[in-house]
Amino acid sequence: MMEELAHHILDVARNSLEAGATRVEITVEEDPASDVMRFSVIDNGSGMPPHVLRQLTNPFFTTKTGKKVGLGLPFLQAAVERCGGNLEIKSEVGRGTTVVATFPYYCWDRPPLGDIPRTIVSLLVGNGHLDLRYRHIYNGHSYELDTREIRSRLKGISLDTPEVLIWLRQYLTESLSILSGGGGYEIARRAG
């Protein structure tokens, strides 16, 4: 079980890395007025053939050797179903995969969004070359981070140097706090 949507996002994006993706686009869309909380992960990884796609939410299916279960997407499917949301997965071999999870914004069974900066930074550990685009839309206003831009500023220093990642985490935290007006429903939920 995942406590935060940010944990699910990390898990889905890790699948992208395991599928050999060099570019991952993560988008979080908060639209309280329309009662929508949505996230999507789009990658350019190896993609999946139809017989794998059909089995994705079966917890006893995995493509990995030496394992009997694959719980990531079944967990996400369960989280979505608990609050009447929707999970959509599209994939094409050789092109990549798109995962879109949509939840009602106001639903107490929905996991809180959680710590997005921590998820983004964790994903980049050991993956300094990854082209990661993170987009956050809150009430129609959007914020975007692209690791290609950060890397061009670093001029050869690896993006996943601990000091750089610590800076990035604080930078993201502040940027997202400004986007949501320094507070809001999700933060209140986290405080319990």
Binding site: I150, R153, L154, K155, G156, I157, T161, E163, V164, W167, Y171
Partner: peptide, 9 residues
């Protein structure tokens, strides 16, 4: 970030 980069280099 630019300053941090110079230090790391």
């Amino acid at each position: 970030l630019d300053k941090l980069r110079e230090k790391l280099q």
